[in-house]
Design a protein around this nucleic acid. Structure first.
Lengths: 349, 349
DNA sequence: TAGAGCCTGGACAACGTTGTCAGGTGCGGG
DNA sequence: CCCGCACCTGACAACGTTGTCCAGGCTCTA
């Protein structure tokens, strides 16, 4: 007989779902069902001898408690859901990990899904998670109307929004100071002598993009600089179009001498474009990214702390679950300007 | 009365767990329980009028099917588990996302957890996922003994290992050609005239690290170059120690003229160290990373495709679930050498 | 030695859903 | 006019677990 069993053996041998249950364990150990339950859950009131017998049966049968059934009985699932835009985006990795760590500390598992920036997909995911009866939700919203969550909130699903506020419902939200950060970043460029400053950002229907745009406008207005339309490119994220947008504002009738990039993906593409330019163009990006310090010049950024964002949200979620939070709040975390060279270049007309 | 309701209202109004059930919907609609089930699941055999009444009750009560109970009845959970090392590592983001996409295409959700490279934590996570009765598991193993999974495999939990093979059990595995990739990378350096080549990698108990080391040794042996101990640094990953290791092999009695970095984190740190050196040292890294092309010189790497790794594994998982795969297999994906400059620098003694 | 109290173990219902099956209604054909 | 058939609907059990409650046996004390 060969030493390795093929999967066919395994499946046909014991059909899927034919896992041993507490009943089977009880039968084998010659005890009652409830006694097995007690042993499995480490409850008191079982003789050492009985416990040994039960444990033996558990090991022999390869029994593992079915948490689905447990959930049904107990009400809580000890799992939380995280809905974000794209797990592959380096900004969300640390955020997700931070949420996971907090969940782990509370004995909960993390289910997560990517909305791909699509409101319908976000809703679909969120509702699927609610159907699974996750105890709580951390949501980085793609859509701007979350009334579909009303029944869930009523039913007691803890919910915290991150990075962008919820739309048309009253819920906790943890976000970065996008407006203040962008404003400071653009002011930094102005302080270094720039007046024709370009802005490349995402669609203004995305809250963060709108706020950063607002910060850009505010900084320009503070300095009394009228903004020309050709300096702004909104709703542009894919590399090809960002490239074109950057090239246009660099070569137009009143070419910019500096660029403010609305997020990390945009920044990276702009870096590429600027590297090809003959003249030196200043750059400040929103979001820090790895190796920004190793580029020549180093890239000056407005940094937000994704991990802290995630940790703060998750902690708030569990405080909700403990019944400690009564009123939805808006928590805004500060950003930090990190100067590395690209934002300190003087204008070259 | 204020327009916003406090969370206290919501919770005390309807206690947690007091969600409407099909029974409630049935009572309100004046129909039987099973009829509600039929409507909710889109089964046939319900009058339009009855369906309308039921739908009305559903909307009025904010009913949502409890998938936990459904799972209990049906046997499958339509969810799969992904256990990896660290979600925050840029290598795992795309992998995780790829797994998610495949899961989504099969109507399944993804639960994931980070093992933090700790075998105990890996086991804890895997077993927790099994207790939730995930239909399948994609595991990037941290440990090297997976016999604890035997009962689960017997019970029919589909399992695919990724990036590193399972230990002491017979299971599907999808991995990159670490040995061949490293060998090609080091051979590339040798072809450019280097003989004193350093290797900085992770602990050899990690399969990928061991394979890459083996590739390094093979390439050196192919060229008839005896390897000196001082050129190798194993089990080193945190930036501080990588830095020290790199500095030592650059300044020792027989200083290296080129470095092969065993993974992306090591590569990045080595780039930093090399940037501070007076003489030019060649570098080839295992794993590609964003912006590698923008550095001066661009960093030559042996690239593996994390997304393909994840997609391949997930697809295989679902084929297992469909009962189509009978024998565990080992699938090895090729790597690709991407030359960007750093690996083509000549030796400078 | 008898009664009280404690400890251990088991029977039973319930969690919310779905599969099975049988009952009831309306309609068409023989 | 009645039978049979198709169609719709609902009662009931079952999924695997946990909470409640009770029975029986033991020890301890008066």
């Amino acid at each position: 007989m060969p030493e390795t069993h093929s999967r066919a053996d395994r499946i046909s041998g014991t059909r899927y779902g034919n896992r041993p249950t507490m009943k089977d364990v009880a039968a084998r150990a010659g005890v009652g069902l409830k006694t097995v339950s007690r042993v499995v859950n480490g409850e008191t009131g079982v003789t050492a001898e009985t416990e040994r017998r039960v444990q033996e049966a558990i090991d022999a049968l390869g029994f593992r408690r079915n948490d689905s059934a447990r959930v049904l009985r107990k009400g809580r699932t000890a799992s939380i859901g995280l809905v974000l835009e794209d797990l592959a985006d380096p900004f969300y990795g640390p955020l997700s990990r931070a949420v996971e760590e907090v969940a782990r500390a509370h004995g909960a598992l993390l289910i997560n899904g990517s909305s791909a920036e699509d409101p319908d997909r976000e809703q679909e995911l969120v509702l699927a998670l609610c159907a699974r009866r996750v105890d709580g939700l951390v949501v980085i919203p793609a859509g701007d109307d979350h009334r579909y969550l009303e029944p869930e909130l009523k039913a007691g699903v803890a919910t915290v929004f991150v990075d962008r506020p919820a739309g048309r419902i009253d819920a906790d939200v943890v976000l970065s100071d996008n407006y203040g950060g962008a404003r400071a970043g653009v002011a930094h460029l102005i302080a270094h002598g720039h007046r024709r400053i370009g802005f490349i950002g995402d669609m203004p229907r995305i809250h963060t993009a709108a706020e950063r745009l607002r910060g850009y406008r505010a900084a320009m207005e503070d300095a009394g600089i009228p903004v020309e339309d050709s300096w702004m490119s909104l709703g542009v994220t894919d590399p090809g179009r960002v490239r074109r947008a950057a090239e246009e504002m660099l070569s137009g009738p009143s070419p910019v001498t500096a660029v403010f990039a609305g997020n990390n993906r945009v920044t990276v593409t702009v870096v590429r474009v600027l590297a090809e330019q003959a003249r030196r163009v200043a750059l400040v990006g929103f979001d820090d990214f790895e190796l920004a310090d190793l580029l020549r010049p180093g890239v000056t950024v407005v940094a937000q702390d994704a991990a802290t964002l995630g940790r703060t949200a998750a902690e708030r979620l569990f405080r909700q679950l403990d019944g400690l939070l009564l009123t939805p709040e808006r928590i805004e975390l500060p950003t930090r300007l990190i100067t590395r060279g690209s934002g300190e270049l003087p204008p070259t007309d």
